[in-house]
Design a protein around this nucleic acid. Structure first.
Lengths: 249, 249
DNA sequence: CACGAACGAGAGCGCCGCTCTTGTCAGACG
DNA sequence: CGTCTGACAAGAGCGGCGCTCTCGTTCGTG
């Protein structure tokens, strides 16, 4: 990935860049992304503020680097949690991936806010961020797709639910483009998107304090949510063990 | 609610306070809450920054006033949407309340970020905010409780789902304290909390740009989500029309 | 060895939240 | 009606912010 530095100067540059990023992430944890002070970061690494501009052309560029790094870290955590499971244990993979998602977020609340909280006002995320940003949802989709390729019963649309095949067309294209599934049923795509949203919504509510008076134990609550969302996707132990060919209802 | 001002001075104070709040909310829409500049707000209302401190002792106090006002506005919108429905039409009430929730949020993205985005770093929400903050979820619970008092089939826990009766004890206490339901089944409470979280998670993902490549039409998508979440709560037309007394399973 | 690029430090710009002081005017009270 | 107190707007000033520019210095290369 990163080249070995060939000169003392290049080495210094590399380590200082890392130091700046680390200091920025350290500050991120107790002060939000929007008020991240470049001057304070500079002080932390023993530099004057203007010197930081040798390494990042602007505060936005520093934010972009942080965002990419965090998306990648979160994505890697989720992917590794999934990879550590028995491939055939779909409910276990779903829960492990979900837990990894929350685990990283709870450990890095500042970084979570950077990724999933209020966007920084004047800041527009560049293209480079979308790839790393999709690693989590890609992993979740992979688990769901594997389960249904293995015979899990696909979810059935609620009676009276509006047809949204057109609405989720981009999502299906995303899935197809990455070779995850050639033709996923609409309802499966919909339920996966809902589950993905609900997982992050749960973490967001927990970290931002909206569950304060409602839920006693964030850990236990999240597990309960994740298991139910998985079950809605046909990812319960029962659904997987049942005869695969049984049609819905 | 607010007393009629008895002197010219009191009137001026009242209108100026309103002007400041309005200007702050206007600024909120295109710049996040954390970077809301009191000086800029002062300029907008034709005052010098220090003069604003006659009306709000600090920037945090101004934020608190804004938060309460916004929670109340959102809560009122949801309550009114529910109230405008036929009381017996539970699925309709659920969808209406959900739509109102999103409608207000989409119309007031800055205010939504203030309420449900990254908390302002040094800011701790005072007690006064929790009452207004719960108006939305209270309305959603009311609809669900009404439906099940009217015979809707309560949701059944997925096989293998962990028991979380203890975890949601605060939520049940909240419900009981407000006379919404004496003894709601655990699974109903859980599903309602999940639905509440998922609704706001969906809005959050939409407004913060995480659905960009996945969903074509935010309006249609949200309806699809709301209907499915309602159905999971036993709030589909079919579930309500079914024989009320049928026990779960 | 010499030259240019990279670098760190500093000063300075206009912005921020917030405090303190100053002068003014409304309104309550004798 | 006069006085006096409190509310008020304005300004200066504090330290901190993102960012720019300049100025020596040092490193790496032709």
């Amino acid at each position: 990935m990163t080249d070995r530095p060939r000169t003392a100067r290049a080495l210094a540059r590399q380590t200082l860049t890392r130091d700046i990023l680390d200091a920025a992430r350290a500050r991120l944890t107790d002060e939000g992304p929007t008020v991240l002070s470049l001057r304070a970061v500079a002080r932390d690494v023993g530099m004057v503020s203007s010197a930081v501009y040798r390494y990042f052309p602007s505060r936005d560029a520093l934010l972009t680097a942080l965002i990419i790094e965090c998306y990648d870290e979160l994505g890697a955590a989720v992917e590794q949690a999934d990879a550590a499971c028995d491939r055939a244990d779909r409910p276990g993979r779903w829960l492990a991936a979900s837990r990894a998602l929350r685990g990283w977020s709870v450990e890095h609340p500042g970084e979570f806010a950077l990724l999933y909280g209020t966007p920084v006002p004047g800041y527009a995320a560049p293209r480079d961020t979308v790839g790393p940003a999709t690693r989590v949802v890609r992993t979740l989709i992979q688990v769901v797709v594997d389960a249904h390729a293995g015979g899990a019963r696909p979810p059935v649309a609620a009676p009276g639910a509006p047809d949204v095949t057109e609405v989720v067309a981009p999502a299906r294209a995303f899935v197809a483009d990455r070779g995850l599934a050639d033709d996923a049923p609409t309802e499966l795509v919909v339920r996966t998107l809902i589950a993905w949203t609900a997982l992050f919504g749960t973490v967001s509510f927990e970290l931002f304090g909206h569950l304060e008076g409602s839920v006693a134990d964030g850990d236990g609550w999240f597990d309960a949510v994740a298991v139910r969302l998985g079950a809605d996707l046909g990812l319960s132990a029962e659904a997987i063990d049942a005869t695969p060919a049984r049609s819905g209802r």
